[in-house]
């Protein structure tokens, strides 16, 4: 259990990295790339507007003009799925960033300082672990009034304990390593020890965690949309689309399956990348 990350022979390692990257992970990176592209240029590519009603056409199955068919209001499912990418990335990215900041600050502080601070932070983390997060969100949003922003904030609070626990654990481990103790004995200021020595060593872990958090946040936000608690009705959000089209399974299954499939594919890609990063770190002698 010595070190997290090594450095030299980097070129050799990079070559090994390419060779040893599993196909699934490579595909996941590719898929995320496509999503980013769609988020940026989707509106230019989508054949129809996300909300453009086509009442004359009504409900259709996939055909030449509407690749995934239309929903009961005649909206093009294909275009709406493309527009949905932005919602699918925006909320989770906010949550991931928020949890990253909170998790790293609290985790580093609790892990390095220890004592009362650590005890209270960990008490809070334990509590949050035992709580079924999404249900709490449902109750809170239900009672306080549905709002996307609120959903994001609540999910940041619910996600950050995962980061906090992981970061605190590795900080604690790094802190007791001789290289940190040597730095303390040499009189290096705490700032330098934390940010020059410890933080770079735990950064890969929080990075891996960010991918896992993204998957969790996407699933949670779509679930809220599905229940009608997140984003407003009629929005081209995957969860919302699925919720509005699930009764159309007989008439146009694609209207429900396309957004559902996108949620699963996106979350799976993120989870695969996150797991893979974790495994690579573990291979270098770190336990999860």
């Amino acid at each position: 259990m010595t070190t997290l990350v090594g450095g030299p022979r980097a070129r050799g390692r990079r070559r090994l990295l390419l060779r040893s990257t599993p196909l699934t992970v490579a595909l996941s990176f590719g898929f995320i790339g496509i999503l980013l592209f769609l988020a940026a240029f989707g509106p230019l590519l989508a054949p129809h507007g996300p909300g453009s009603l086509n009442l004359a056409t009504g409900l259709t199955t996939p055909n030449g003009e509407f690749w995934f068919g239309t929903d009961d209001l005649g909206r093009d499912v294909f275009s709406r799925t493309i527009y949905g990418v932005r919602y699918a990335l925006f909320g989770p990215v906010l949550i991931v960033v928020g949890a990253f900041v909170i998790g790293n600050v609290l985790g580093l502080a609790a892990g390095y300082r220890g004592g009362m601070l650590d005890a209270s932070v960990m008490r809070w983390v334990d509590l949050m672990y035992a709580v079924p997060g999404l249900l709490v969100t449902i109750v809170l949003i239900g009672v306080l009034g549905a709002s996307y922003l609120l959903a994001v904030v609540v999910l940041v609070v619910l996600t950050s304990p995962f980061d906090t626990r992981v970061i605190r654990g590795v900080t604690l481990e790094q802190r007791s390593l001789p290289y940190v103790e040597a730095a303390r004995t040499l009189g290096l200021p705490v700032r330098a020890i934390l940010f020059r020595h410890i933080f770079p060593n735990i950064l890969p872990i929080s990075f891996a965690n960010a991918f896992l958090n993204f998957a969790f946040s996407l699933v949670a936000l779509s679930a809220l949309s599905f229940l009608g608690l997140g984003i407003g009705p009629g929005t081209a959000d995957w969860g919302r689309m699925l919720s509005e089209s699930r009764l159309l399974l007989f008439e146009n299954p694609a209207a429900a399956l396309a957004p559902g499939g996108m949620i699963v594919l996106t979350a799976t890609s993120m989870n695969l990348i996150g797991d893979w990063l974790y495994d690579r770190l573990a291979d270098r002698g770190r336990a999860r």
Binding site: T24, A215, V219, S222, A223, F226, G239, L242, S243, R246, L249, F250, P253, A256, L257, G260, G261, I263, V264, A267, T268, M270, N271, L272, D275
Partner: peptide, 25 residues
């Protein structure tokens, strides 16, 4: 492992809709 990653990435409502589509529809 792949099955478990997909399982962990699929919200219940999506799994439900897919199962309904395949086994019921």
């Amino acid at each position: 492992v792949s099955l478990s990653v997909v399982g962990a990435s699929s919200p219940a409502f999506v799994t439900g809709v897919f199962l309904l589509y395949v086994f019921a529809v």
